[in-house]
Design a protein around this nucleic acid. Structure first.
Lengths: 218, 218
DNA sequence: GTCTATAGCAGGATAGAC
DNA sequence: GTCTATCCTGCTATAGAC
């Protein structure tokens, strides 16, 4: 552990705990006092390092959510690169689902991540532009470009966007509604159930209800 | 307008405004003062009619969200009954998408509805059980039963659940992430764009990316 | 049933000692 | 940089007049 000075460590602790709490309860649902209790530091530390509560909130997005998002996108590219062949729609969807469901994050991080994202996307707040510009926009453009390369037929831009949003909708749904999914299927989100989910997302993305045909890849 | 006594009216006004505000900002994000300002009534009215803030919150679910959910399900059944033929997967998905995207609600009501639902589903709170039992559970069972009737092949229960959740995921996504979808497609959620979305949901639910084939029903 | 007034407390933020 | 002490605003909830 590096600990050149203690500053960074306290600051990091505040950021980590703030993220987790904001994700669970939203901006107004969390008090600064809760955060500093979790981070085991003094009340004034928040104002010292971040100025005020709102700025701490924004910093959570800048310093945690956005970098993590980028690392998930990296992972997506890496997965796709490893795949043979990597130039089918199935490969793109598989890499995407894998990166976002199993990706480089711990389960706690993933929970945080989606909660913060979803909160901000539905009720555009101050972090919305940040997330939109640095997360959604690049992801959609990347996916759009890649899919266009591997889909043989002509496809109009709007339709492509709706397709991509449908796949993302599923991925978000299965990450975000865990309690519901768990209650319906009886499965906890362990490694084997996640594989099952990824398989399902690929299958459904390619063939939907697959009226008349079935049974796919890996 | 019926107004036998003023009680009901004040109570209704509080409920309506509370719902809208809770949907936008969550339980802790809203103050009772905000609500009574919007409802144009006195501070104590909330305690008089509902006891306390938390109970008002729960009452919003009991008296507004759940009945509305049921009316959307009614609408779904009605749509399905009108359809000829009504015994294909396409008909079921179409009726579902139509009920949930265009259904019997105003756009404001729909926004409220999904925001409250999603909030409660991700972070199981006190209203979770209410919503799960009266909304999610019956809907899933109904859909499961109906789809099983119209899907010709054998399909295991778990796979059916995942399929249904995928479709619901899309519907929720397109309702809930409006700001994002609007920014990407350039379309506001007017009647013609909603029709486009419904068409897309049917198409994608049946054929996914439709690798190799395309072009569907109504 | 509806209002005013207020109790009682928790929140964010800051000043100033160390 | 970190802490304690404190300010002041704004919250929920209630008591009690009308």
């Amino acid at each position: 552990m590096k600990q050149k000075n203690k500053d960074a460590i306290v600051k990091e602790r505040i950021l980590n705990n703030a993220e987790s709490l904001f994700a669970q309860k939203g901006f107004r649902g969390v008090t600064v006092r809760e955060i500093i209790n979790a981070a085991n530091c003094n009340l004034s530390a928040v104002n010292y390092y971040f100025g005020n509560k709102k700025n701490l909130y924004l910093e959570v997005f800048r310093a945690r959510l956005i970098p993590r998002s980028q690392s998930m996108c990296e992972r997506f590219k890496k997965f796709l690169g490893q795949r043979q062949p990597s130039d089918s729609p199935a490969a793109v969807v598989e890499a995407l689902a894998q990166a976002f469901l199993e990706g480089p994050l711990s389960d706690d991080e993933r929970r945080c991540h989606y909660q913060l994202m979803v909160r901000e996307m539905s009720q555009p707040g101050e972090a919305f532009d940040l997330v939109f510009e640095h997360v959604m926009q690049p992801l959609l453009q990347d996916l759009s470009r890649r899919l266009r390369l591997v889909i043989t037929e002509e496809i109009e831009e709007e339709r492509l966007i709706l397709n991509i949003e449908s796949i993302l909708g599923m991925i978000i749904h299965f990450n975000y509604f865990r309690s519901v999914i768990t209650r319906f299927t009886g499965h906890a989100y362990d490694s084997s159930f996640k594989k099952r989910l990824i398989e399902h997302i690929i299958d459904f993305s390619l063939y939907g209800l697959g009226v008349g045909k079935k049974e796919v890849l890996t």
